[in-house]
Simulated assay, not measured.
Amino acid sequence: MSSINQSSVSEFLLLGLSRQPQQQQQLLFLLFLILYLATVLGNLLIILAISTYSHLHTPMYFFLSNLSFVDVCFTSTTVPKVLANYILGNQAISFSGCLTQLYFLCVFGDMDNFLLAVMAYDRFVAICHPLHYTTKMTHQLCALLVVGSWVVANLNCLLHILLMARLSFCGNIIPHFFCDVNPLLKLSCSDTHLNELTLQTEGAVIMITPFVCILISYLHITCAVLRVSSPRGQWKAFSTCGSHLAVVWLFYGTIIAVYFNPSSSHSAGRDMAAAMMYTVVTPMLNPFIYSLRNRDMKGALRKVLTMRFPSK
């Protein structure tokens, strides 16, 4: 019986940084390192602050802590491999390692997507139904929304990985800094029609449905806020949504630019720049966006940073 995977390659070469002159490689390495450390430190501080202070134990901050955890995992799927490859001078990644990286990249990307939609729903309930907020956004519902998101994300990504594993590959050079769908499909010498169709249909539904839910939530929020007679009240309501909206537009803008344009419009440089935005820059900016515009979060972070631990 023939193997499902007829690939003739055992490893791929990630040429993301190696295609640049030596001086630019060093600058890119330093940039990746700084952004990664800022991402991990910023998001871990958010998680620590929310878990430490009881007045932040609300649905909004519960979802935010989950988003921070996912962002750390998301950027850790790609950046450490980039840094290791540069230090070791080896751009190789095994076939199984490539598919594993692609799987987790997909899972954490989907989770970012779902959590942004869940956070929009939370804001919708808080602003449009404030008197029923505590009865609607129960601990059980919050946990169910997060667990359900994990289940759907894993099932969706498993489908794409199984379809990718059935392909055979005639080349092994990936002009990217991680294993992504579009570069891998270009290397395949099999019929990729089913993969592309699944990506443009099922994959699009997974991405677009939460985005539509966000738009609907904010349409209702806008209508509710405009009915508030006090300008101060309107500004206060809108300000609670500003951070979330900034993250939404940053995340979806780069995702749409990479995955939902015609394949003829893709270029290695353009895809890599956009991918760096949503895998490295956006997870790094999220903690700053949420903390700078949130008085409670700024206060909690200030306490965490000045916390003194008892000496042994």
Rank of each mutant, 00 (worst) to 15 (best):
H55P: 00
H55T: 04
H55V: 05
L56C: 08
L56D: 12
L56Q: 11
H57C: 04
H57W: 07
H57S: 14
H57R: 13
H57D: 13
H57I: 06
T58F: 08
T58W: 09
P59N: 12
P59E: 09
Y61R: 03
F62M: 08
F63R: 00
F63A: 01
F63P: 02
F63W: 00
L64Q: 00
L64F: 00
S65H: 02
N66A: 14
N66E: 04
N66Y: 02
N66T: 02
L67T: 03
S68T: 08
S68H: 07
S68F: 03
F69Y: 08
F69M: 10
F69H: 02
V70E: 04
V70T: 13
D71N: 15
D71W: 04
V72T: 14
C73R: 05
C73Q: 11
C73P: 02
C73E: 11
C73I: 11
F74N: 09
T75L: 08
T75V: 10
S76T: 14
S76H: 09
T77F: 03
T77L: 03
T77C: 13
T77I: 04
T78Q: 08
T78K: 01
T78P: 00
V79H: 10
V79T: 14
V79G: 13
P80I: 08
P80W: 05
P80S: 14
P80A: 14
K81Y: 08
V82H: 07
V82W: 06
N85L: 04
